[in-house]
Amino acid sequence: MQFIDLQKQYKHLKTRIDKRIQTVLDHGKYILGPEVKELEERLSDFVGVKHSIGVANGTDALQLALMALDVGPGDAVFTTTFTFFATAEVISLVGAHPVFVDIDAQTYNIDPDLLDKAIERVATEGKYAPKAVISVDLFGLPADYDAISAIAGKHGLKIIEDAAQGFGGSINGKMAGSFGDIATTSFFPAKPLGCYGDGGAVFTNNDELAEKVISLRVHGKGVDKYDNIRIGLNSRLDTIQAAILLEKLAEFPREMELRQSVAGRYDAALHNQFHIPFVPDGYVSSWAQYTIRPIKGPREGYMTQLKESSIPTTVYYGKNMHEQTAFSFLNHQCDSFPIADEISRAVFSLPMHPYLDYLEQCEVSSILTRDKINFGSTSEK
């Protein structure tokens, strides 16, 4: 069993994807070719934004968003501590100061009340100027943008939505990637919408920000690539990857329906023995991951039982940002983020993809709900 089965997806789309790739090979425009522009237009339609800009990867997308907002040395950027390293890494890459915030115990996304307090604390201290918030749509669930927007507005901060995992999710019909001042996503193969290499995109309704990102992704170009008006990156979306994404995006609504079905079956089977993912009313998760937390016992016993049946599991994320060696200079106290610490030590993720076989899923659920799970010498919680 595969944790994310890209081969099944490729077999389903093989004829269409192969034809798209062959078209690129025939015209030979491998960098920012016509498929990139076509993809950008279709992404804008899907997300519901004015501008979509294809870039080389999701990390670059975040860095470009910060650069477009002129975030740099002396600025403070607030983000969740429970996320993938890239979300926080880009803050340091532009010379800004990362400020980590604990998470909501139900959604695992950034806690808006604690965000508000963190902004007020940094503003009072006066060492750094609060400038932006990077919110993360963790595991596919959009963050609480009503609350985050109100807080950012009160303090005059910009919002960057990190929708790398959230692409396809929504709040009351408004799609992930359309929240905040600027948003980003990743097309890493394991993401809900993934290519066959690296890729990413930036979304915004702001004409000026879009123009800056278009410039910044090609070395800060002006009227052409030899007229450089700002310091930028080399971050162009590959044409072949765009061609692949065009066919995957066309299939994506159907795959989203399949993801909901897979998640629903897990919910029904596991809710008595695990804390299953919480999805608030009006929210739709894209189910980038299906992440659970045992009601009884540590996760290791369950993960071992699955491994013995050749069923893969993964921990996202076992080490929070405030615990990373690269951020040790921030000197965080060990009890500063109690919710994230508790969650990171308890959660694990199950196989999740649109093509997960029903019988395979039944096997996963059956093993997890057995009465006799070996917890080893660790005491039950």
Rank of each mutant, 00 (worst) to 15 (best):
T314E: 12
I295L: 15
E89K: 15
L356K: 01
P192Y: 02
T304L: 13
Y290C: 03
Q324P: 00
A129P: 00
S261N: 12
L6I: 09
P277N: 10
L141I: 07
G140M: 01
G156T: 05
D26W: 02
L245I: 06
V24G: 01
P351N: 07
E41W: 00
A132D: 00
I343Q: 04
H51Q: 02
C334N: 13
S377C: 01
N234L: 12
A190K: 07
T79Q: 09
E308A: 07
R259T: 01
Y317R: 03
S366L: 10
D207M: 02
A129K: 15
R345T: 04
L157D: 09
D357L: 06
S344V: 04
A118S: 15
S44K: 11
A242G: 11
G153V: 09
D104G: 08
S286H: 04
D357V: 06
A152D: 07
R254D: 13
K14V: 05
A288S: 14
K212N: 06
F203Q: 04
V99Y: 00
Q333M: 03
L114I: 02
N374G: 01
G264P: 01
E89F: 12
L270G: 05
V223M: 13
F3N: 02
T239P: 09
I276N: 01
S178P: 08
E38C: 05
D5Y: 09
M175Q: 14
S344Y: 01
S235W: 00
I4C: 07
R121G: 03
H51P: 02
T80K: 05
E40G: 03
H322C: 08
T314S: 11
T239N: 03
V213Q: 05
G173F: 09
T81S: 14
Q305S: 12
Q22A: 12
Q7H: 11
D60Y: 14
T239C: 04
H219Q: 14
Q22Y: 08
P130T: 05
G126K: 10
I21Q: 10
G168S: 09
V284L: 15
K212I: 05
K372A: 13
G282R: 01
S170I: 06
E363A: 13
V347K: 04
K127D: 11
D144H: 11
I231S: 14
F337T: 03
S379V: 07
T79P: 00
D116I: 01
T79R: 04
D116N: 14
Q63K: 15
H322I: 07
K29I: 13
Q305T: 03
I240C: 01
D45A: 14
I151Q: 10
P98G: 13
L246E: 14
T59F: 01
T79D: 00
G197C: 06
G220C: 08
A250P: 00
F188M: 10
Q2C: 02
C362L: 08
S349V: 02
A68L: 07
Q106A: 12
L25H: 14
